[in-house]
Every structure is written in C-alpha cells, then in structure tokens.
C-alpha cells in the first residue's frame, strides 16, 4: 500500500489558524519517523485550508492530506471522525498522534473506537521502545502525581493525544513535503451537530510564554492584582485549574495536567497550593517564584524562590518596584 506505515498527525485549525499543539506534535512525529526510518503524514480538515497544509509541509510533514469542504468548516466530532478514519485506512500508519486540545480529545476518543485502536491520553512524553519499535507514552494519572508508561498492545494504529506545550514547535524549513487533496465523501445529513454560534478570541498559548504570572485559589476570586503584576512585568497570565472550574478564568489559561505545560524562563506563582496536577506543568520552567501565605505549602518544594506572605501585601509592592502603578 502506498505510504503504509509511518506516523500520522491530525492537525487542528480553527477559523484558519493552526493550533500550536498540532505543530508541536508534528515536530515530535518527525523526530520519531526519522528514528524509525519512516514518514510523517499530516491531515488538515476544514474549508479553504490548503495554505495551512502548505505550512505544515514546511514544518516536517512528508505529505499533508487536505480535506476541504464546507461541511468541515466547523469541528464536529462525528464528521471529523468519519474523514480522519477514511484517511487513516487509506494510509495505514503505525502511529496516530493528536494534540490534546478539547477538540483533539473529542476526536481521538471516537476515532479510537472506529479504528479499533489503543489510545494513550494526554501523554507528557513519547518514546520508542528498544527492540520492538513500539510507541511508549507517559500518561499522568491520579492527579498528575503518578506517571504510567503505556503502550498499545492490540490494534493499529497506536494512538496518543499529547498535552499542549510538552514538545517544541518545529521551525519552517525550505524542504517542503507534498500536499495532496483528499476527497470528502460526507453528505450534509452526515453532519448531525450544527455549530450555531462561536465566540473565539485567539490568544497566544500560555505554553509559549517566556514569562508568566500564575494565579491560584489563594487569590480568591479577584484576579486584578496578579493580572496587574503580569502587565507590570511583561508577562503572560495563567491560572491553576480550580479558578477555571469556578468560572473566574477561561480554561485555556489552565496550567497543569488537564491544561498546558509551561516552557517559560520565569514563572511567578501566586496563591497556588501546589498539587501534583499543577506542578507537573512547571517542569520545563527555568526559574519558579512562589508566593503563598502557608509556609508548608507544597508549592515551595517546586520553587526556586519562596516568599511566605500575604500576596495582597507583597504583590502591590512588587508592582511598584517594577515601575507599575500600585493598585
């Protein structure tokens, strides 16, 4: 079969913008393929998305399949599963990797059943097993404190969703792969979910920030102070999971197991207790500063500089030191 084997990557886009996590996965896929002497196939679905496919072809994919159809303009789990399953059956890859965004996760779960494939969820690392060449995924569980190394013992392809931010975005190169159209056999009645409204404001992913201020429950529901600190220090802003669960911050700002991993030079973490699901997102941060009123807070075990104190008092002083107006 033409193109059989290799690594297949689902590349997500929304309104014509590529998801960062898809490019990160593409970079890792190329690394794996080079090691195994196989090829990377990317898949881009949407309407008018060929330019995105061309970009992916410059970032490591040997071939990018494009499914272009008005029926694929919006992500719907079922229709996307139909099309990607068709592509995977045509290409017969060994591995199928997907960024663990909301849409990627919804797609992966349905697709695994359609393909009869094993699926490792939200992996924080991928390796190739010595001898067998099988894909090994590091899957965090039990609140992120424990990592299970998993593999797909039955079914092909071996599937994994990858936590955003754990791999690097590949740089564009002069060597572009091929872009091929993939015929879409969907009929309008196959798209049973209709997106009737969408409000999306694209923002830079927290996993790409060089500096970031992260707020936790200790900030109560008022995030104006940590946000001001972010502004005064030229930093991005993120939160721990409970603040998003309470609805005071959007989910795309969540750091940790069910959110993004950071790759910052500096993270200032304010009022976060430091549960394992959170600290697992700090592993790639160069310098961590933690401010917490509890001297025994777990977060201090994961910080380079620790300040025991009331954030409401320390943070305003820090803001004025940095030349920001004191709130």
């Amino acid at each position: 079969m033409a193109g059989a084997g290799g690594v297949f990557v689902f590349i997500e886009q929304t309104d014509g913008a590529l998801e960062d996590s898809s490019l990160e996965v593409l970079g890792k896929a190329r690394e794996i393929a080079d090691r195994l002497g196989s090829k990377v196939t990317g898949a881009v679905l949407g309407e008018g998305v060929r330019p995105l496919a061309e970009e992916c072809a410059r970032r490591g994919a040997h071939t990018v399949l494009v499914a272009d159809s008005p029926l694929l303009k919006n992500f719907t789990a079922e229709a996307y599963t139909d099309v990607v399953a068709g592509m995977v059956k045509a290409r017969d890859p060994d591995m199928l990797l997907i960024g663990a965004t909301h849409n990627g996760t919804a797609l992966a779960g349905m697709l695994a059943i359609r393909l009869g494939a094993g699926l490792m969820a939200h992996v924080v690392d991928l390796e190739i097993e010595q001898g067998t060449g099988m894909l090994l995924g590091s899957v965090p569980g039990f609140g992120g404190s424990i990592v299970a190394v998993c593999k797909c013992k039955k079914g092909r392809p071996q599937m994994a969703t990858v936590r955003p931010g754990v791999f690097q975005t590949p740089k564009p190169t002069d060597q572009a792969g091929a872009v091929e159209a993939f015929a879409v056999a969907l009929k309008p009645e196959d798209v049973r979910c209709q997106v009737v409204e969408r409000t999306v404001q694209h923002s830079a992913s927290v996993s790409k920030a060089q500096r970031i201020v992260v707020a936790g429950l200790g900030c109560k529901d008022d995030l104006s102070l940590p946000k001001k600190l972010a502004e005064a220090s030229g930093s991005a802003f993120g939160v721990s999971r409970p603040l998003a669960d309470k609805g005071v911050a959007p989910k795309n700002l969540v750091i940790g197991s069910t959110g993004s991993s950071l790759n910052a030079k500096l993270a200032v973490v304010v009022g976060v207790s430091g549960a394992a699901h959170f600290t697992s997102g700090l592993r790639n941060v160069e310098t961590v500063v933690a401010v917490n009123s509890d001297p025994d807070a777990e977060i201090f075990k994961h910080a380079d500089y620790c300040v025991v104190g009331d954030a409401a008092k320390v943070v305003p002083k820090l803001i004025s030191e940095l030349g920001g107006s004191s709130p």
Binding site: H102, N103, C193, V195, E197, R198, T199, V200
Partner: peptide, 9 residues
C-alpha cells in the same frame, strides 16, 4: 468550551 472561547451547537 473550546480553545480560546466557546461555541453553541
């Protein structure tokens, strides 16, 4: 909820 926003289906 989706990345950076929400949609109604």
């Amino acid at each position: 909820e989706v990345t950076d926003g929400h949609e109604v289906v």
